[in-house]
Amino acid sequence: MLTNSRTDVMYFTGRQVHIKRDDLLHADFSGNKARKFYHFLINDFPGVSHIVGSGSAQANSLYSLSVLAKIKGWKLDYYVSHIADYLKQQLSLSSGIRSNYSQAIKNGANVIEIDWSSNRYHACHHLDDAINVLKQDCLRKSNFQETLFIPEGGRCEYAKTGIYILGKEIVNWAISQGINKLSIFLPSGTGTTALYLQEYFVTQAQKTTLDIQVLTCSTVGGDSYLISQFNELSSNSQLHPQIISDGNKYHFGKLYLSLFQLWQQVLDSSGIEFDLLYDPIGLNVLKHAIESGELKDREILYIHQGGLLGNATMLPRYLRKQALTKNDSVKINR
């Protein structure tokens, strides 16, 4: 269950790129969230009746946690900095849009906007700070043992369980294909998947003669933020994946038409639909790395990020922006 996703091939920027199809793991658990939450799915947590998560209201983790809570019979409180009006509008019966947010609500998730004006959060600057306040509140209550806090994006040591399985799958696949030099690439939010994959290859796969490197890029907050996330999970820099860049700093959830056009080109040429939050940035950075010759003489494995349910929110936004841009261009040409 939730293992052994297949590997497909697509041709990208003149190169053959292998695609680890983690988007096909399961209808409700896919991509990196399936790997990171695997530990919670397969293990028992006696006494736990309530989980607390946090992140973006359109994040894949919100939906995956809502499914996990539903399966386990747990209550889910998911804290966010803000819920955009267009997400709230999706809850109307007439919209019919299946997004991470709408489906999580349908599964019983309690999505809570932080009230930043409250004295309770007066010293908080980020969502993580607010969650720490909530943890302290919970510690003072007698039912603390019933509550399980899952860090944003599954950034915790428990994520190793599923990610190590992913690492073993990749090793077995590479051996079966006769691949000796392999560059694994995936875009990062918190960097949890990339870091634990690198850790697996350094510490667990030493018996093989494979030359495997894990490459990643930042999609949230820039490279310095990503390095800080790595350091929270492991202070050993030898276990950190290599961060590569196309020279741009991206803002999470912001619309970039050039990335959308690349996403469309890949969909048309390969028939593979990628996520619209993380994968377009990842594909652009990979394109830059290929064109610069960084990956010469190495096979490339791209790990699909899953989370296609989120495209129900992102795609209409991109199409509106694309239409507005075309209209503005026509006005200027006139």
Rank of each mutant, 00 (worst) to 15 (best):
D279P: 10
M1A: 13
Q238G: 01
L134I: 15
F201G: 01
E273M: 12
T325H: 07
K321N: 08
Y225I: 06
L24D: 14
S258P: 00
M314R: 02
N231T: 05
V220C: 01
I71W: 05
D129Q: 09
L76F: 11
G55P: 07
S329E: 02
I212P: 01
K287W: 03
Y164V: 05
L276F: 06
S234C: 09
L239W: 04
H304A: 14
M314T: 05
H82Q: 14
K160T: 08
T209Q: 15
S49D: 12
N32S: 14
Q89H: 11
L76H: 12
Y278P: 00
T190N: 07
H18G: 06
L315S: 00
V52G: 03
S224H: 08
H240T: 01
Y164P: 02
M1D: 02
V214L: 06
L286N: 01
D268L: 02
G282L: 06
K106W: 11
I114M: 02
K20A: 09
C138S: 13
Q229G: 05
G293L: 08
L68R: 05
G191V: 00
E299F: 10
G167V: 07
I272T: 13
S292L: 12
H122G: 00
I227A: 01
E291L: 04
G253V: 06
S81T: 11
G178P: 04
R15Q: 14
K135H: 10
T216S: 04
N284Y: 04
V266L: 09
T161L: 11
L301M: 11
L76A: 09
K249V: 15
S245D: 00
V52H: 02
Y250M: 03
S183R: 11
T216W: 01
K321I: 06
V220Y: 03
G47Y: 11
Q58R: 14
F45T: 12
A69C: 09
R21P: 00
V285Y: 00
H288T: 13
K331F: 14
A194L: 04
L24Y: 07
S102E: 07
Q305P: 14
A109T: 07
S118R: 03
Y79M: 09
H82I: 08
L283Y: 03
V266F: 11
Y278A: 06
K168R: 15
A27N: 13
D275A: 14
Q198S: 04
I303V: 15
I112H: 01
F274Y: 12
K326L: 14
S64R: 02
